[in-house]
Simulated assay, not measured.
Amino acid sequence: MNNALVTGASGGIGKLIVKRLIEQDYFVIGVGRNEKSLRELSSLRNFDYIIADLSKRGVAKRIRRELEQRGVKKLDILINNAGFAIAKPLLEQSEEELEKLFKVNVIAPILLTKELSDMIPRGGKVVFVISAAAFVNTVDLPSYGAAKAALHYMAVNLEKELKSKNIYVIKVYPRQVATPFWHEKVPKGSISPEEVADVLLKAIKKNKSEVYVPAYVRLVKYLPRWPVFDYKFKF
């Protein structure tokens, strides 16, 4: 049986990805902070979970230890999906808020990939759920957009590094998605998490390097840097 690890598995896109993978006969380990939500998923066959806060120092090594203690020696797919945003001007964001945001959105996925890379076999996949915000100026979510731009940059370079190990990197760029991420203030035109999960799973099957959801979002890569996009909301 193939194994997969999904971060941000307790809700939104992550929860759907877990269910889709289980439907395809994967054994899935979900990582998240919401134990109640993860425990609900544990009623599914072929599912286990790890409670972890990706903003904490040393969390990648702890996740590695948890996997080893549970007898998981191989990961066919690693999906770095966890993320969150702060809807405040940069001058109002504290040092602690900025550190936590960049740890979860940028540093944790890179360190987790590094820590687990030797568990990923030849032909395995590492998925980064990034965002179209990597290519536009999201004025209401300035630190989030900056973090996603940083993750994009790192994922592009990590793709080259992992190629020598025959590990595929898949980068996913959705536009805003209707999930609890928005704290019940979902922007107009948001797409469904089901659409993102379905596109992501197809990309895994076809070994695509990058996918955009919807497909036309690809056009933002070719706009003048940096076009302004204002969500016009506050959490």
Results as ranks from 00 to 15, higher is better:
M1C: 10
N2G: 11
N2A: 15
T7F: 01
A9R: 14
S10F: 08
L16H: 05
L16P: 01
I17N: 07
K19M: 02
R20C: 12
E23W: 13
Y26D: 02
I29K: 09
V31E: 06
V31T: 00
R33W: 10
S37M: 09
L38C: 11
R39A: 10
S42Q: 14
S43I: 15
S43G: 13
N46Q: 12
D48E: 08
I50Y: 07
I51F: 09
A52E: 00
L54D: 05
L54R: 08
S55F: 01
G58K: 13
V59N: 09
A60S: 10
A60L: 10
A60P: 04
R62N: 15
R65C: 07
R65H: 15
E66W: 15
L67Y: 03
Q69T: 13
V72M: 01
I77C: 05
I79N: 07
N80H: 07
N80V: 06
N81M: 00
N81L: 02
A82S: 12
G83W: 01
F84P: 01
F84V: 02
A85K: 06
P89D: 02
E96P: 10
E99N: 14
E99H: 09
K100A: 14
F102K: 12
F102C: 06
K103W: 00
N105M: 04
V106L: 14
A108C: 07
A108L: 10
K114D: 15
M119H: 06
M119Y: 06
I120N: 03
I120E: 01
V127R: 00
A132G: 12
A133S: 04
V136Y: 02
N137I: 02
T138H: 00
T138L: 12
V139H: 05
S143I: 02
S143C: 01
A146Y: 01
A146E: 03
A146L: 03
A146T: 03
K148L: 09
L151C: 11
L151K: 08
L151G: 11
V156W: 05
N157K: 14
N157R: 14
E159W: 06
E159G: 07
K163Q: 12
S164I: 15
Y168M: 07
K171W: 15
K171P: 05
V172M: 12
Y173D: 05
P174R: 03
R175A: 05
R175E: 00
Q176Y: 13
P180K: 07
H183L: 07
E184A: 09
E184I: 13
K185N: 09
K185S: 11
P187G: 09
K188F: 07
G189P: 06
K202E: 04
I204E: 03
I204N: 04
S209Y: 05
E210Y: 07
A215T: 08
R218Q: 13
K221D: 00
L223C: 15
P224G: 12
V228H: 08
F233C: 00
K234N: 02
